[in-house]
């Protein structure tokens, strides 16, 4: 950095000038951390862990499984949507666009309410088509909303990644006499996936965060269990525990992504 070379620094700003911003900022964080530590030492209550420890772990498992399953389902749904977005057929294009716009342009929480409480109104209809067992359960409704929502986002990730692969890769494949399918799955997709790795990881992180909403439709995920614990004790540390668990989950995922990206792009490093 040029900052190490005093000759390049503007003469108006001598190096000796006291810069309070940095230590004020870090001081604030230390204060927050210290206040929390102090608060925890005083408020910490082993009986709370005995009472709610298992529910938190169960809630964490519900969150992880809900996000995991809906991410995979969303990936499956996203494939035709992404192809529709890239299709030349205007109907397919329009439908795919409408799907993506609907799910990305409205709040997930409103979608969940619509699918849970709104669909509940049409019990008769769902019973005739034999799907009521699915929409009867809050967990499935949450899964349904999350999967369709992430499908819309994943479709755009997938489209962007596929379009980022140069045309020459297709042409090269064709000149080798490969079929379109083989080129798509063996040549284009592996390259697209490297580009898409980070956006996909970000999408999972966004889903983990967004999934907290299902607590409002009686699914006891991590956030739902937290609200339960809080409403029984009015002890604020119940929320702090949840915050720490969510942060740990998200940070673990982010570091895993960084590691995976470094490994997968080893061959691209010069």
């Amino acid at each position: 950095m040029s900052g190490n070379n005093p000759a390049l620094a503007a003469p108006a700003a001598p190096r000796e000038k006291l810069k309070p911003a940095g230590f004020v900022a870090i001081g604030l964080w230390i204060a927050v951390a210290a206040a929390f530590a102090f608060y925890f030492v005083r408020a910490f209550d082993v009986t709370l862990i005995e009472r709610f420890g298992w529910s938190y772990l169960h809630g964490l498992w519900v969150t992880v499984s809900l996000v995991g399953v809906s991410f995979v389902l969303g990936a499956i749904v996203s494939l035709p949507v992404a192809l529709g977005r890239m299709a030349s057929n205007p109907i397919a294009q329009g439908l795919a666009f409408a799907f993506v716009y609907f799910f990305r342009g409205t709040p997930l929480i409103a979608q969940i309410f619509l699918f849970y409480y709104g669909f509940g109104q049409f019990r008769g209809f769902f019973e005739t088509i034999g799907l009521w067992w699915f929409f009867r359960e809050a967990w499935y409704c949450g899964l349904f909303s999350l999967a369709l929502n992430t499908a819309a986002y994943q479709a755009e990730i997938l489209r962007g990644a596929i379009e980022s692969v140069p045309k020459g890769q297709w042409e090269g494949g064709r000149s080798l006499g490969l079929s379109r399918q083989v080129i798509f799955f063996k040549v284009v997709m592996p390259q697209a996936m490297i580009v898409a790795l980070r956006p996909y990881a970000n999408e999972i992180i966004l889903m983990i965060k967004a999934s907290a909403i299902v607590a409002i439709i009686t699914v006891y995920d991590l956030f739902g269990e937290t609200r339960q614990a809080y409403s029984r004790t009015y002890d604020f540390q119940t929320y702090v525990w949840a915050a720490l668990l969510y942060l740990a989950l998200v940070e673990a995922l982010r570091h895993a992504t960084n590691w995976a990206e470094r490994r997968l792009t080893r061959h691209l490093k010069r």
């Binding site: 983990i208 999934s211 907290a212 915050a243 969510y246 942060l247 940070e251």
Partner: peptide, 11 residues
């Protein structure tokens, strides 16, 4: 950034 990007907005 780490804290407020990682926490669920609802939380």
């Amino acid at each position: 950034t780490t804290i407020f990007r990682g926490l669920p907005e609802l939380l």
